[in-house]
Structure formats: C-alpha cells, structure tokens
Amino acid sequence: MSIDPVAFARLRENADQLSQVPSVGAVEIANGQIVLTVSPVRRHERAVLRIARQLNDQLRTTHPGFVAHAGAYLEDAGLGRLRRPDLMVFPEGALDLQTPGLLPHEVLLVVEIVSQANPENDYENKVHDYAAMGIPHYLLVDPRDGTGIVHSLPNYTSREKFVFGDAVSVGPWTIDTSALLTYGS
C-alpha cells in the first residue's frame, strides 16, 4: 500500500518534531499514522549489543565497509513507511549522507528484538513492511520465550525458527544466540 507523497511528507515532518521530545522513544510511520514506541528495557538493548558485535566481526570479511548499527531510521516514502529497526546492516558511508533515513536498497539485514509491550508489531506489521521494502533478511529475536525467526526474501517465504542457544544462519552470517537472555531469566 502506498501513501500520497504530500501526506507522507506531512507525517514525516510531525515525526521529526516528535522525535525531539526527550521522553519519546522511537517515532515511526505506518499505515498512514505516526506510531510512538516506548524506550526498550535493558535486556532488549543487551541483545542488540551482542548481535551487533557478532555481525560487525563478520562484516569485516563478508562485506567490508558495511556496519551493523543501531539507532538509524529506515524510510520508504513510496510505501509511506518510516521504521526504526533495533539494528541494521548497511554501508557505513550511508551515515555520511544528509538524508534523514536509510533507503531500503542500502540495507541488507534488519534485526528486531520483540518488545513485551507490542509483540504483534514485530511479528506482523514489520514482517509485511520489511518484505515490501525488499530487505533481504529480517532477524526477529523474541526474549519473551527465547525463540526467533529468520525471514528471507523472496517475500519472506523462507522462515527458519530457532531457540536461544542455537547458532543461526542469517544470509552469509552466523549468530550465536547462546549469549541472549530472556526477559524473565
């Protein structure tokens, strides 16, 4: 589903203003609406850190010049989507550009750590959005029960489930999930 470019520009402007408010977490745009997310818990951030370290170690060999980085936005104005994945793999040089968000063709992988507050967003809405954007791989990590899914193109028809403790193949990378903790452990 696409959105009128003028309507998306208006939403984007409002999202930019909201993101300046100190207590607001990530500001996203989906389905013609601004979506506010709460700030993540420590276990969530620990999982992002552990996965980023593993990916960055491997990217030096598999994709020199690419980085696994948290905190950037992913924007597809044609689809009317602005997302802030927990982690993305993209060319480090993309951070030098003046554009506010990364473009889908720049991103090789998105990683989402499922939140306790709104798991449906990661399991349903983001699966749809990232597939529609053409992101090659989507790693979904669920600390609620110590499981996850690797989604891969085309259309994320390839779905490999895993449990914490497994070594997981995500495209050319391998993630050791034994260092991840559930929210309850």
Score class of each variant (00 low, 15 high):
residue 24 V to S: 04
residue 119 P to K: 09
residue 71 G to Y: 07
residue 144 R to V: 13
residue 35 V to T: 05
residue 163 V to Y: 03
residue 100 P to N: 15
residue 3 I to R: 10
residue 78 G to H: 04
residue 184 G to V: 03
residue 48 V to F: 00
residue 6 V to C: 05
residue 27 V to G: 07
residue 122 D to I: 02
residue 159 R to F: 00
residue 38 V to G: 15
residue 72 A to F: 00
residue 142 D to E: 10
residue 4 D to R: 10
residue 66 F to I: 01
residue 137 H to C: 13
residue 101 G to Y: 02
residue 143 P to V: 00
residue 72 A to N: 13
residue 46 R to N: 13
residue 33 Q to N: 10
residue 46 R to Q: 14
residue 17 Q to H: 07
residue 135 I to P: 01
residue 58 Q to V: 02
residue 151 H to R: 10
residue 59 L to Q: 06
residue 52 A to K: 15
residue 180 L to N: 04
residue 63 H to E: 07
residue 183 Y to Q: 12
residue 105 H to I: 08
residue 58 Q to L: 09
residue 182 T to W: 01
residue 47 A to C: 14
residue 143 P to I: 02
residue 160 E to F: 06
residue 58 Q to P: 08
residue 13 E to C: 07
residue 99 T to S: 12
residue 8 F to V: 05
residue 26 A to T: 10
residue 47 A to D: 15
residue 56 N to R: 14
residue 176 D to K: 01
residue 46 R to W: 04
residue 163 V to C: 06
residue 63 H to K: 13
residue 36 L to Y: 06
residue 48 V to N: 14
residue 155 N to G: 14
residue 19 S to E: 09
residue 78 G to K: 07
residue 12 R to Q: 14
residue 17 Q to C: 04
residue 50 R to N: 13
residue 123 Y to P: 00
residue 181 L to P: 00
residue 45 E to S: 13
residue 60 R to F: 08
residue 6 V to S: 12
residue 111 V to F: 09
residue 22 P to A: 05
residue 105 H to Q: 15
residue 167 A to W: 06
residue 63 H to L: 15
residue 26 A to R: 12
residue 21 V to K: 08
residue 58 Q to G: 07
